[in-house]
Design a binder for these strands. Structure first.
Lengths: 110, 110
DNA sequence: CACAGGTGTCAAAAAAAACTGACATATGTC
DNA sequence: GACATATGTCAGTTTTTTTTGACACCTGTG
């Protein structure tokens, strides 16, 4: 139920995924009940291409999980649900994650 | 020591403030010991104008606190320190914050 | 077959965030 | 006075993120 402390890069990915009003709404909504893309788009009030992108970001951060299912009438429907993550943030937490935070400015080797 | 649950807008401001590698490093570094702007810029390895901007964002989110002090030799030095916040994030936490999350797309009245 | 409703992708535009260099101010020391 | 160190700001560029509209695909129903 609880998560092991994420690496710096993971932490950054998670925080970046959370730092957006749409994505907070998506996550909060999915925490109540799972839903599929088109429906969720209507509920939240944004377009499907946009929602799709946001879901990608959330899934990449491990905050949401999507499963493609076949409904009774044979149509492909992709359901998303919130993973039950638990992340505690304090200055200490962050300090401990720093060693594993990659510097993107670094130059690659020959 | 613990924070009362932030409003949706506050939560978003905090998350946005954290969602950046430089700012994570700043926060982590300040969690060890307070430091002043120019010094901190050298430690972290970024320019002062840039650091200044990041500190603004962190302070606006309440994650960092700055105090202008006069050093022994009379120079004005601005010290920053990390506030001891504690934020727990779960799908539930987020869901509870949603009602107080402002929709920026809203139209203003006449 | 046309339609409704589901899936996804792509490129281009718009908006927001990050970054940089130049500038201005102040104080103590050589 | 020139220099070193501290503070901050501002405009303009670059980069990243967000958003939109147009596609294409599949399946069951009228």
């Amino acid at each position: 139920m609880d998560d092991s402390p994420p690496t710096g890069d993971e932490l950054l990915r998670i925080l970046s995924a959370l730092a957006n009003p749409h994505r907070l709404r998506i996550l909060g909504t999915l925490s109540v009940r799972r839903d599929y893309v088109s429906s969720l788009a209507r509920v939240i009030g944004i377009g499907r291409p946009l929602l799709h992108m946001h879901l990608q970001r959330l899934e990449a951060a491990g905050l949401v999980r999507g499963t493609l299912e076949l409904s009774n009438d044979g149509k492909a429907v992709k359901y998303y649900e919130a993973t039950d993550f638990a992340l505690t943030l304090t200055p200490e937490t962050i300090r401990r994650a720093l060693p594993t935070l990659t510097d993107k400015t670094e130059k690659k080797e020959t």
